[in-house]
Design a protein around this nucleic acid. Sequence first.
DNA 1: CAAGAAATAGACCGGTCGGTCTACATCAAG
DNA 2: CTTGATGTAGACCGACCGGTCTATTTCTTG
Lengths: 180, 180
Amino acid sequence: MNDTRTKLAVEAGFLFQQKGYHGVGIAEVLERAGVPKGSLYHHYPNGKADLALAAAEIAATEVLRIIDASFDGARDYAYGVTTFCYKLAKYFDIHEGRIGCPVSATLHGGPDNAAFRDALSNIFARWMGRIAHYAEGFGQTPDAAAQSAKRLFLSLEGSWTLARARGDSNVIRQLPALVC
Amino acid sequence: MNDTRTKLAVEAGFLFQQKGYHGVGIAEVLERAGVPKGSLYHHYPNGKADLALAAAEIAATEVLRIIDASFDGARDYAYGVTTFCYKLAKYFDIHEGRIGCPVSATLHGGPDNAAFRDALSNIFARWMGRIAHYAEGFGQTPDAAAQSAKRLFLSLEGSWTLARARGDSNVIRQLPALVC
DNA sequence: CAAGAAATAGACCGGTCGGTCTACATCAAG
DNA sequence: CTTGATGTAGACCGACCGGTCTATTTCTTG
């Protein structure tokens, strides 16, 4: 297990989420991580693209963790959604309101290739699947659960966009009232 | 009135919407528009940033036009929403599925300054205001209309994101069933 | 310890970036 | 025809881009 490798992806993710793939220079990532260039290309032979995919994967996993933490102790679906949105709003505030969906901000606007699109598509599917899983657990039929998950996901992506434009996380906090 | 000026903004918009602010080079815009560099800095003294704001404004106005065209002859709110979504899905397909919300794709990921954020925020507000206007016209109370507009807008932003990741405009076409 | 693998370190490279600058063409007004 | 404003044309610039390469240090394993 290598600390440098992870640190690079984490710091790169932090920057990608704010400025997008093309908005971040390798030099900036290296400076933030306190790592020389040689190490980057040792751990990520394909350079920036590898770094972005790794950063997106880390962010994706973190969001799944937040979903679990939000729904596990929830008394019903709406309660879980509310907790989830509040946690995300807090995450948004940590980045000082200059962030969109951590995954799409990182991968959209990157090189227009199949690898990036597939990664995005898969991550989104995993998120919706996990939310649907919890919705089913609260008694919804599979179809209804999938629909609930999709409704939440789509609005959430939009909320991130609007929250970022306004620099105000309340858009995210008010989401449960809109979709439940 | 100057044709070159408009042509530059339109072509720049086409590219920004696909690759984002930092993903597009000035040279690429000039080539597409068939315009030399001197003309660009004559019409847009602040260069790329001016160009992006002008492009976003054009796209924003075009969306307002589509909203009007969708709701003007509609028999009820849901019908208008459906027409609106179909028109946007078509627009998405014209760009071969490589596009997000034309405005946020252009301005998000651009320079992190107040001018860009304000422009985005204002454009979004105008869109939601126009949708709410039509919702009121179909008998919704002002509060309910504002809520309907917000619900549609947020899901729509999300749909664009998901549609782009999947390269499939059907996400947008299926939206009315989810929000009406 | 020896020896090779793993990782760090950063100088260096060609290409492209956004932007400036000067020269020239076009046009309207006197 | 002259003159000044408007717009076109593109050579040119320093800064920065992502990526390569060699040298060195650190870790692992026998």
